[in-house]
Design a protein around this nucleic acid. Structure first.
Lengths: 309, 309
DNA sequence: ACACACTGTTTATGTCGTACACAGCCCTAG
DNA sequence: CTAGGGCTGTGTACGACATAAACAGTGTGT
């Protein structure tokens, strides 16, 4: 029992809070956690999270792989620290902005910018609650923006979560695009065109009527931003709720749905099997069509080779 | 040039659409893509995405690792197929429901259920557009639910994205909890309590005043569901927009924000460095406090051991 | 001055994805 | 009806990767 007196934080989180107790004896340290994290972030910025291996980070700093473990207890910790570093503090200028809507908008925009600069952040799986200092600062500032509203504490947190989530989702979809762009060297317009072409070939009007209509309406070629629209709707929804509160409306109960309590795995299996039947029928149909096309092509080929047959 | 006549779909996606052209010659196949995918899903359901290795899947089916590559061209493809399989078709019963709000609600709920049953889906990074048959079916049904509204095609797609994103986010946060639960064997209540305790110790009223107030208000101990609240606000926001349209309001421009166009990496570096200064100052402060506490503890210890000193 | 906590390094282990070459199977062209 | 070749599942092999363990050198508190 070394009695560290700190609650057992997830190791990486503890490091992020600066709970480290630098050693007294021994040779001078040549590296530092910060240098390691910076090197890792640079690697990830350049070539994605996959490029971050302990060996690569160490090499970038001119050391051997194992040396990093004197500063970071495991790779997972390093990733938490990278996240923390890239997250940074929310822009202080937000405090000068008037109106909760505008503040939320600016915070949202700032989050998207971060994700665009560090797309690898979106590849990090959400692991419980990485309650690190910087992420706490973002939550704090978002909550502060909402203090002028009549929302209660829980509702404010719910809004915070919603904004963060929307930004995360936005970033993920956008980053998907930019990753494809970097891998294939296509411009966004080219990617869009290609996707549209793919959709065009795959979405049959029988199986996906509504989606087909959307494709025909050219939604996948549009350059308007669906996420901005979504964010506006979210703000509207919050405003409507606030108005209703002001008009003496009752607060939302916000109770968890009963359905979600027990994930009935057995039922799911049965369900998936039933679906498989449907899928198989559909596949059979597609196969039939495909075979027909293939047969036609073969016939044509043979005819071309042996015109007299 | 084998002239496959199909556009070059991402390999895994092609498989999902059943574009496979089963071979004519050679020994009878003993396995099938479906069996492989099912085995992989079962593994992932039981022990997470990390438990899905080619070797593990093969072993479960009684074959050698390499045999899988006759059916699946790479692990990434297998994962796309797992996603597709677990996604399944949207519940057909949604079509019987009256009202777009109610339909969206049911689709949302159904998505959450899927994520609860297959939490590993949330660990799969969003890779561009996995436009697979089943995911298309979900989009199709969501769009269909919105056809009774005066929203135009792009707006409907934006709403679809928003609902999916919220569900994904919801699932991710929830799954984080349940993963922690499985790893540590704690009940949700215990986890909540633990998190609350952690927050309590880390969130200082000086650095995070608004967040501190929220903690004190007990938001992390509440059992009400922030996501349901959020979803209600989203629906409200859409409804408000529809009302505005009906009243003759103009459509949202939804133009992309200029800021987002160019992610200025150099500026970010400068920004991060400036933040580092702030962080360092804060850390110094925390360290000072910590050292003080440590010194105090040491003094007490020494006093206890040598009462006469 | 000496012990020992601590440094960065070396070596080694186990897991993983997957390339490649193989021996046997069986459809199809001749 | 036979031969060729595309197919099957398998075995071996290789290169990443995370990280455990043992090591020789360093510098500080006793």
């Amino acid at each position: 029992m070394t009695e560290d007196s700190e609650l057992d934080l997830p190791r990486g989180v503890a490091l992020a809070w600066g709970v480290s107790a630098d050693p007294q004896r021994g040779p001078k340290r040549e590296m530092s956690v910060e240098k390691i994290v910076d090197a890792a972030v640079e690697l990830a910025d350049a070539d994605g999270l996959g490029a971050v291996s302990m060996a690569a980070v160490a090499a970038r700093l001119g050391y051997t792989p194992m040396s990093l473990y004197r500063y970071v207890s495991a790779k997972d910790d390093l990733i938490v620290l990278m996240q923390e570093s890239a997250t940074g503090l929310p822009p202080a200028a937000v405090r000068e902005i008037d109106g909760w809507k505008e503040r939320l908008g600016e915070l949202f925009r700032a989050q998207i910018e971060i994700y665009l600069r560090h797309p690898w952040m979106l590849d990090i799986p959400i692991s419980g609650s990485p309650a690190t200092p910087n992420s706490s600062a973002w939550v704090d500032m978002t909550l502060e923006a909402l203090e002028e509203t009549p929302l209660d504490a829980e509702e404010r947190l719910a809004v915070t979560l919603m904004v963060t989530g929307h930004a995360h989702w936005y970033g993920a979809v956008l980053a998907g695009y930019s990753t494809v762009g970097r891998t294939t060297g296509m411009t966004p317009a080219q990617i869009t065109a290609r996707e549209a072409a793919l959709y065009d070939g795959l979405i049959s009007p029988d199986e996906f009527p509504a989606l087909r209509r959307a494709v025909d309406a050219g939604v996948f070629l549009s350059d308007s931003d669906p996420f901005v629209f979504g964010f506006e709707r979210i703000l509207d929804g919050i405003a409507a709720y606030i108005d209703a509160l002001a008009a003496g409306g009752a607060r939302s109960a916000g109770a968890a749905w009963a359905v979600l309590e027990d994930a009935d795995v057995a039922a799911d299996k049965k369900y998936r099997e039933a679906q498989k039947t449907v899928r198989e029928a559909e596949k059979a149909l597609r196969d039939a069509q495909k075979h027909q096309r293939q047969a036609l092509r073969d016939a044509r080929d043979r005819l071309a080779r042996h015109p007299g047959a």
